[in-house]
Design a protein around this nucleic acid. Structure first.
Lengths: 387, 387
DNA sequence: TTTCTTTGTTTATGGAAGAAATAAAGTCGC
DNA sequence: GCGACTTTATTTCTTCCATAAACAAAGAAA
């Protein structure tokens, strides 16, 4: 919410109108992938007379590629146009403690180049050197940069930020934007995952979803009405702080709830249940052990109950309709997911689907792509029918 | 999210452009109230050449009234234009068990006419007769109708709906819209209150807020990024179902939490604490009694703690930044509000302001006005997700 | 009065939207 | 194989509007 000063830009200026039409065509083509001018006429509502020169322009710019005539039963065959995903590149930067991973992807989410660098010196500087290097001659096609930071990214408690050297309130996004000249979005990694699953994962068919990510901590990403919602201080989804557990209070960086039910906590408990080395995938190990060990089964049920209360809380507040399990929670098997679904259904006033996220590691990347592309279209009235 | 059959409307057609400009001017004038054409040029970005005929048109339609020349230090004095709130009327219909109250208000929220009728026969029919009657010769200025229904209004559990004779899934909004020919919005009364406080109450300066309404039940209304968010099934804000209380489960129409901490429950407890007749304003009575009676003070603290856990839950999920106390919670005195604020602050990761709502009974009305005006602006038939 | 300053209106001009005619490129019927 | 028909793409032409610039209005200052 940075646009406060009404810029003296007219609402329907010539440039804006042109921009809107361009984006309308590009965005439609991005979705449909291969289509004819006739289809563009139907989908965008633009007249053929408008489209002819516009499409010519987009072909010249490399957004569209003219393919041969398509099949047609009758009449003149449609000259097919194919959207060129390589015309739009996006950089996804992931800040981790002491490392920085950077990926260049096209608008399909196909990674064109990637690199991991050690984090030394100024973050902004590192990003601004890495991205152009990696993009290479594709740099002119760069449409946006999305930076994923662990923890809360803007305002609020920047609890994990110090670990990657972020100074609170440092306008890292703006700095990078000014130096690279493209839109930059900085956000929490969980929010990006939610955006990714919404764009092309387990939530692509709905407008609202909640993604519950279980890792070292527990966080949620919220999509409402097709947009990631961050709340006033960017702390939406800090569900680890939910007051579900009467014991334990205070916010010394970790919420009372997440201390007990995070992947870490489960791993520790697993060591107690099945002595040996700490499992890499503790939840998967727990699920497996629960098939034979009674104590493990009981503990699994405890975990599911705890998570269900988390989910129920979220559902009661925002009614997302769909909840995606991410991170360690993905390791649950079908039976466990179904159990979780039952626990939620009996406690909640509105029908809610619980399922696993599907993008895994690639969720953040897809979210970054989605962010960067929609950042390019930002500032325009939303004119496209949501899929 | 019914996939609306993509209307072949072009994104920047002539009509749309005109409509956008008109709305741009009207909405600016509505905010500023009295301004000159020169100010309109600055604020809307439209050129003087565009404004001259447009303003003339709006004057002819009664939206603007030309006043005398304003004061000016130098140069030609500005001819002031005043926005005429009476040019836009809005109907707010409130469905209650067995009654239906209907108000006609201008865009200031000033009530022009009101009436309460007993609910007999078809609701749609009653509404469609009452509104035009009440509007009288102002009917052409009617811009929208907002219908407030108790409980969840669409999809989800229509728990209170049967009490007002609603059939589940009945498209009451569409029916009225077709017969009256203006945009109609149907929503939960708590959502309308939240919209009202956001438009011109205790939340007019922020983009996000959560309104906690305590009455027979407990419900919350959620505004995120300037819009009321209803969730996928319209059940967002059903905070009475939060799993905060280990005891009591199941959703037989009333959440486990709200059964214990609603106004009703407090009233009953008050009768036990101070034998006599059941107080009209139990929370106010409790606050007063707590000054002298120790048991009352303890109970008040219990209530505040319970409410604070409710608030904390919501804040952790959506981080609204501001929480407004509505309904019975408005009866808290400053000290109690401050206590609540403290309880919330210590348990929450993000700074959050707790204060009383200010519109009281008029919140729903102002919300209805806000809804109806923005529905007219969006040109959307009705904003509710169809189940 | 003259001149200056700001405001509002009117007057060209270019350029796009919209509609319709035209050209293109096939299929189908005979 | 040839013409009629169908659908698609482009071009043409008219109309209308955004932009800009010139112009008129209405007072204040000199």
């Amino acid at each position: 919410m940075t646009d406060v000063v009404t810029p003296p830009t007219s609402p329907v200026s010539r440039e804006r109108a042109k921009e809107i039409k361009r984006l309308s065509v590009i965005s439609t083509a991005r979705q449909v992938r291969v289509l004819s001018r006739a289809e563009l006429t139907e989908l965008t509502g633009l007249s053929p007379a408008t489209l002819t020169p516009l499409v010519r322009e987009l072909i010249a710019e490399g957004y569209l590629i003219e393919r041969g005539p398509g099949t047609s039963r009758t009449g003149r065959p449609r000259a097919m146009l194919e959207f060129n995903p390589r015309a739009e590149l996006v950089a996804a930067v992931s800040l981790e403690p002491s490392r920085l991973s950077c990926e260049i992807a096209d608008s399909d989410g196909t990674v064109v180049a990637h690199r991991t660098v050690r984090l030394a010196g100024d973050i902004v500087d590192t990003v601004c050197r890495s991205v152009p290097e990696l993009a290479g001659d594709g740099l002119p096609a760069l449409r946006g940069v999305a930076i994923a930071a662990p923890g809360v990214s803007s305002g609020g408690a920047v609890r994990l930020a110090p670990s990657v050297g972020l100074v609170e309130g440092l306008p890292i996004g703006e700095s990078v934007q000014q130096r690279l000249g493209v839109p930059v979005v900085v956000d929490n990694d969980v929010n990006l995952m939610a955006a990714g699953e919404h764009a092309c994962g387990a939530g692509s068919d709905v407008a609202d979803l909640l993604l519950l990510h279980v890792a070292d901590g527990i966080g949620a990403g919220l999509v409402l009405d097709g947009q990631v919602r961050r709340g006033s201080g960017g702390a939406a989804g800090e569900v680890g702080f939910l007051p579900l557990d009467p014991t334990g209070r205070g916010h010394d960086g970790i919420g009372p709830f997440e201390a007990r039910w995070s992947e870490n906590a489960i791993a520790e408990r697993m060591v107690a249940l099945a002595p040996g080395r700490r499992p890499d995938a503790p939840v998967a190990a727990l699920v497996e052990l629960a098939g034979t060990d009674e104590r493990a089964a009981a503990y699994l049920d405890e975990v599911l109950t705890a998570w269900s209360r988390l989910i129920v809380s979220c559902v009661c507040v925002v009614d997302p309709g769909r909840v995606l399990l991410s991170g360690a929670a993905t390791q649950l098997d079908d039976a466990a997911v179904e159990r979780l679904q039952d626990l939620v259904t009996t406690a909640v006033p509105s029908p809610t689907e619980v399922r696993r996220a599907v993008l895994g590691d690639r969720a953040v990347l897809h979210g970054a792509v989605s962010y960067a592309l929609s950042a390019a279209a930002a500032g325009l009235p939303h004119l496209l029918p949501t899929p």
